[in-house]
Design a binder for these strands. Sequence first.
DNA 1: TCTAGTACTTGGCCATACATAGTACTTTTC
DNA 2: GAAAAGTACTATGTATGGCCAAGTACTAGA
Lengths: 111, 111
Amino acid sequence: MNVENTQVQMRKGILEYCILHIISRGEVYASDMLDELTAARMIVVEGTLYPLLTRLKNAGLLEYKWIESKSGPPRKYYTLTDKGSKFLEKLTETWDDLVHSTQMITTKSNA
Amino acid sequence: MNVENTQVQMRKGILEYCILHIISRGEVYASDMLDELTAARMIVVEGTLYPLLTRLKNAGLLEYKWIESKSGPPRKYYTLTDKGSKFLEKLTETWDDLVHSTQMITTKSNA
DNA sequence: TCTAGTACTTGGCCATACATAGTACTTTTC
DNA sequence: GAAAAGTACTATGTATGGCCAAGTACTAGA
C-alpha cells in the first residue's frame, strides 16, 4: 500500500469524465487528448487512453471517423453521440456531488 | 457501461482518503464513520468499510484498541499512526491536484 | 530498401468497491 | 435460563478500470 497506488485508484472513473468532456468541445483524436490532459497535469499513458476510447465507443457514447494526416497514418477523430452527451451530464452531477461530499468531510474541523 | 458503475469507479481511492481524514480527527469506530459518511451523502456499506479498515491497519497506517460497549459487543476504536498521518498528507496533495486538473479540463470553454 | 516517427491495438496484471453470507458477543424477552 | 433480537466484525468471490509492455500498421525521408 503506497501513495502511487492510491493515486492510480483515485483516477478511476475521473479519466472517463475528463475524456468525454474534452471530446464534447469538438472533434479530437487521441494525441490531442493526451496533450490536453498533460497540460492539465493529469498524466495518462497510451495504454490507458486507447482502451478507454474503445470502451466508450462500444458503449455507443462516442463515434469516430478516419481522417487523413499529412504526417503519418490516418487518425480517428472522435465526437460525442447524443447518448454520450447525456452520459456526460450525469457524470458531471456525479463528480460535483463527490467533490462536495469529500469537501464536507475534509474541511470539518477537529471536533 | 452505465452511470452507476462509473460512480462506483470514481469512488475508488477517495473513500480511503475520507476514512483517514475522519480518523485523523479522533478515535472512532466503524459505525461512527458510516454515520459521518452517510451524513455527507457518501454512501458506503459495511462490506466496503471493514475490509478497507483492515487493509489500512495491516499497512501500518492505523491502529486500534478494543473498548467495551454498553450496548453490544466491544468495538474497535481506530487512531492514525505517524505513518498514517504522513500518508494522509500525501493523499491530500494528490486529491487537491486531481480536483484542480479536472477543473482545468471541465471549465475550459468550447474553443 | 532501410530507418524513424506517428497512430493505434492487444493481453495480462493488480487493487478496490461491492454483494452476500457468516461468526461472535450482549441485551432483552418470555 | 433459553430463545430472539440487535450490534460489531469477518470472509469469500466478482467485476471493473488503469497500467505495463509488446506489437501492428501506415507514412515520409535518406
